[in-house]
Design a protein around this nucleic acid. Structure first.
Lengths: 244, 244
DNA sequence: TAAATAGTGTCTCTCAGACAGTATGGG
DNA sequence: CCCATACTGTCTGAGAGACACTATTTA
């Protein structure tokens, strides 16, 4: 075992070719009934002035793990502290970054739009963009492809999980929740079936009554137990898949 | 734009703290009606002599992308060239490797046990281990946790996708296929329901007749179209989840 | 009272589970 | 002929879709 200690003492990581290692994030929220994603404008080379997903290098001295890097980036850009954060995939090759062989670990975050610190987004070159526009415009590096992957994952999960809850504040009506699902799935859902499934999952509990947004007030619900990454209820998976 | 070229010419990646970047693999096959995973014994420090998942450093000069690294490792250990390969997740933190902050990208591979080159496994310190044993025994680094994650992904996919097909040769009977699903799900499936779902997915076509394994011969099927990562059929998802 | 949205009753259709029945081979 | 396994027929119950119905608010 002292031989292993000797080995480690003499180990020099910089002998190996350096790989650029970053974390990139697709931060989603709902605004005006549409899915939006946060984009930032690069301040320095490479791709200076172009728009990208927020992200940056892993800091081995400050970040205890990859998720901490992602959380740090998210808080820097939005002020949100405890979002839903999920790793999507990693992409690594020799061509995606002109500086050399690079790897990025892609996360997506779901946040309640109301929880975003309003100041930051105007000071920095940061903006919320409707998803379709973001996918149309040419993002730097391979960030269009990254955004597509994050979107596909999010939409797939909307078909069988309670994940879209994370795009709402802690109290909400079923109509609001249904609308979020409809935005993600790109399809209208049957009201009765939706209520049946959501309520029979024993995920929500009633509270009081709500602001009369238009006519009859709706019951306000809150989450009764935490929605983890693996939670799935049967049913929504049968909805037809949405376009793209 | 020449300023960007200047920037790139003067860019030195080694200014940044080095991160150890590896790819690890959970290579699964079915042997004797049980799910097995390939383990290797480490030949050098750190953790010399201990068992791990096969894996190794990304080679920026040889591998064009992460999947190429994974494919290279797989072929080295098994001789299999075109397996089903799927990225599970990446784990990066400061504690998982004694040499420093390290990231691993985890893949799993599904192969037909009959396609494995038989020679290699005996020469090297490589062995197929029943999954339960592998999870029980103490693997080096965080490889127990990695193996658990790969297993969870595989088992989850067996509930709604046609993925388990990749554990069989190109021709197979429905009884064999059902047995693979049962092994992965850890539960008996209803024969009639299973046949209904598989056949109504229009994935298989009939061929001729088969060896009388025991009594009445069974129809041999083959895949009619490729099963990609996202293919899902309704139904199997309702099966009760298996233990662990 | 009209309009608009919240929420319910209930029919039907699809499909998975169950299980008994039939088919086809080897000993 | 018996047995074991392959495969089918068919009943039943759960749950999603459809849609008309009632309830409760504002204007």
């Amino acid at each position: 075992m002292s031989r292993e200690a000797d080995y480690l003492a003499g180990y020099d990581p910089s002998r190996f070719p350096a790989l650029l290692t970053t974390v990139d994030m697709a931060i989603f929220c709902i605004r005006d009934g549409k899915l939006h994603v946060l984009l930032v404008q690069r301040a320095s080379f490479p791709a200076r002035g172009e728009w990208t997903l927020p992200g940056g290098f892993v800091d081995p001295t400050g970040d205890i793990n990859l998720e901490a890097t992602a959380g740090r980036k998210l808080t820097e850009k939005t002020g949100v502290m405890t979002p839903y954060l999920e790793q999507v995939c990693s992409v690594g090759n020799s061509t995606r970054d002109p500086r050399g062989w690079s790897i990025t670990v892609l996360y997506f975050a779901l946040i309640d739009q109301a929880a975003v610190a309003p100041g930051n987004a105007d000071v920095e070159a940061v903006q919320w963009v409707p998803l379709e526009e973001a996918l149309d415009q040419t993002l730097a590096f391979d960030h269009c492809e990254l955004l597509r992957r994050a979107t596909r994952r999010l939409r797939a999960k909307a078909r069988y999980s309670a994940l879209p809850l994370k795009l709402l504040p802690s109290q909400f009506t079923l109509a609001e929740l249904q609308q979020v699902f409809e935005v993600l799935l790109g399809a209208k859902l049957e009201r009765k079936s939706f209520r049946r499934r959501i309520l029979s999952a024993n995920l929500l509990e009633e509270t009081g009554r709500l602001q009369p947004t238009s006519r009859r007030p709706a019951m306000v619900y809150r989450l009764i137990r935490e929605v983890d990454e693996d939670f799935a209820f049967p049913g929504l998976i049968h909805s037809k898949p949405s376009e793209l």
